[in-house]
Design a protein around this nucleic acid. Structure first.
Lengths: 199, 199
DNA sequence: TTAGCTTCCGAACGATCGGTTGCTATATTC
DNA sequence: GAATATAGCAACCGATCGTTCGGAAGCTAA
């Protein structure tokens, strides 16, 4: 029925699929994201959806990539001009909190959900999630180390421990926001951040 | 084919189903827990499995209950004789860390997985998970409050904030253990606990 | 011994899963 | 303007999903 679209339109269709896929996956999980559901939501056939990717796993990887793009746009890119070191580390965390607080994705933090969903399995999707998570934590570690070397954080700071605590604060924020709907959670996250990184 | 079993055997069959169901659910999630898979694993028919519960949702609720029993047995019951207040709070957290460290369930903390899986939906399963999570956090809050009133923790301690931080430590522990396989994670968790609750 | 209750099985139900195939209609290329 | 490439559709595939049904088998109470 539907004819071939122009190159621009084709790219747009692909983006529509991935965007909607990311919304669904953030709510129902990457496995709960089904081709049929996606086709219905977008008003197209299953073949039209899967034709862009070939395989559901490839589609999942595209969604993971898109989630990474959204996160990058919403968090690290917003603090790109903040001076490196403690100031940048603080800004990264504040942007992180604001990102979760704003409910950019309807299902909360995509990576939290995807990580707990895939942490037991193998395969490229799990590897992609673990890799992106590791990259972000490495960025945090780099700024923390700069802050230590610059004397902005105590010289005996255990950087790995600090990143562990930061991740915990954000996981808790997602947990209290999504499961308990606790509106005080962002306040709590910011207070814990202040205790770790100073005022 | 299989005839009626004695009452004791019947209960045992039901327990076998729920026990295996909990193992599967901790790895694949509560939705990934499938009646067909369960039947295959236990060497029985799908009808034989679902006959004990009537509905998949009822089965899921039974699995959630079983997970709560396991957690209760492995954590709060082990510290029942520790004096109330700070000592008990510390013991609860240590038992919590040990529980995650020991990999009691193959898929890590069942409640972490189930909470992130169901936090966007409605229904009785989500309510059960949220309720059990709330009860455990209330127990933590009670002991924290006793510690404050007894002068074991600073008088200006924000108990809600403390519980928030404790939950974050455990979520991070599960995250680093399951996704990154980081063997240093329990050490990190204990160190963060010491910082919050003293030596 | 018999009647009833219950567990479990085999088989089937409609729905949905991921994926394939053949086709049409158009955008692009020559 | 003709040839080619391709986006998307309708229809279908085998597998699996949760669930239902009738009956076989044996425990239990009469």
């Amino acid at each position: 029925m539907s004819p071939r679209k122009s190159v621009a339109e084709t790219r747009l269709t692909r983006r529509r699929i991935v965007d909607r896929g990311l919304e669904i996956a953030s709510m129902e999980g990457l496995e709960g994201l089904t081709i049929g559901r996606l086709a219905t939501d977008l008003g197209m056939s299953k073949a039209g959806v899967i034709g862009h990717f070939g395989t559901k796993e490839t589609l999942q990887l595209a969604v993971v990539d898109e989630a990474a793009d959204v996160f990058t746009r919403e968090v690290p890119e917003r603090v790109h001009d903040v001076p490196a070191g403690l100031a940048r580390l603080r800004a990264m965390c504040e942007a992180w909190v604001a990102y979760l607080e704003r409910h950019v994705l309807p299902g909360g933090c995509f990576f939290t959900a995807a990580a707990t969903e895939f942490d037991d399995r193998g395969g490229p999707v799990r590897d992609a999630i673990a890799g992106l998570s590791a990259v972000w934590q490495r960025d945090l570690r780099i700024q923390a180390r700069l802050a230590v070397h610059g004397g902005e954080l105590p010289a005996d700071t255990d950087v790995g421990q600090l990143v562990y605590d930061l991740v915990g604060i954000m996981l808790a924020l997602n947990h209290f926001l999504q499961l308990q709907g606790d509106p005080a959670a962002p306040q709590r996250a910011r207070r814990s951040l202040r205790r770790l990184l100073g005022e």
